[in-house]
Design a protein around this nucleic acid. Sequence first.
DNA 1: TCCTATGTGAAACTGAGTGTCAAGATAGCC
DNA 2: GGCTATCTTGACACTCAGTTTCACATAGGA
Lengths: 174, 174
Amino acid sequence: MAFELFRREGFEKVTIDDLAKAAGVSRSTFLRYFGTKEDAVLSTFDAKGERVADALRARPGGEDDWTALRRALDTAIEPYHQDPDDSLAMTRLVRDTPALCARQLEKQHGWRPALARALAERGGSTERPALGDWVRAAAALDCLNAAVEHWTDSDGRLDLVTLLDDAFAALAPR
Amino acid sequence: MAFELFRREGFEKVTIDDLAKAAGVSRSTFLRYFGTKEDAVLSTFDAKGERVADALRARPGGEDDWTALRRALDTAIEPYHQDPDDSLAMTRLVRDTPALCARQLEKQHGWRPALARALAERGGSTERPALGDWVRAAAALDCLNAAVEHWTDSDGRLDLVTLLDDAFAALAPR
DNA sequence: TCCTATGTGAAACTGAGTGTCAAGATAGCC
DNA sequence: GGCTATCTTGACACTCAGTTTCACATAGGA
């Protein structure tokens, strides 16, 4: 798997040819599958945004936005509980590789429209999301990131659920 | 200037050779100056983060974090008032060019450490920033982005100060 | 059987970014 | 002035990512 190769050799040391050879396909085929080298690692990331948005839409209508967002993010942190070691290795690889860091940031940035739209729908309006929806969607993702970063820095020792709760709490006091 | 060329021809149509020729220097020199093609546009962006962090440190100690952050961001939106047309052209170019969008995101991501540290110092602790500092720093940047995006979408007609206030307000209600 | 759609590989091509090296310009010193 | 050290610039070669094109092979359907 690409992930293992990157972890052993470092992301930039491994060429697409290496990855293709390791996967037993041609360079062409590899690029047809993943599009870019980064996506060989981050393709798992793609569906995540839509899943969080779905979870958000599934929350009861009476719930306030912040609670709904916080609960929707339980979907996002599930994999970290399922396989902590693997997740830790992944977040470390991404954190320590500028190219992966940037690409992940970009992908996550792409989640915001779906989240903002889901928030807007919750608010009853079928129109496009308002400024506040965008801000809250983005802030919620920041909470997720801050929590995961701290969790990674603690080598997975801190409790991710608590960290995420704390992150949301840090948004509250005025 | 590189900016004009990109706006006329489109970012990907213009090669580094074109830029170098337009600037009257060699390709080598151009790359020595800017490092990447994206940075030919976004180099102005670099110092901005540090300036906002400085503004944050300059706020009175008694002020709460949110007010201090909001006021510090006045520094960041100043250029948009100084030269609205130019700013509008710039934000549009970035918005419509995936590569620039990604690179800008990455640069702004790099502002957070300085902002979080400034917040931590304000809190009196000389230690490294806590989870909450990171979250608040990131959320404030989201407010800036959301405000600027909306301002750009309105073709500069909406008032950026009001938009930024609204963005911060959207963070408040629980 | 023929035909078309789909998956794969080979190869050439463009362009970004890196590294090296050899001029020139420039500043400081004698 | 002349001389040396340092910094800047340009030329060139190189690696590698990503795109495009073409050819081939296989499978399913008429």
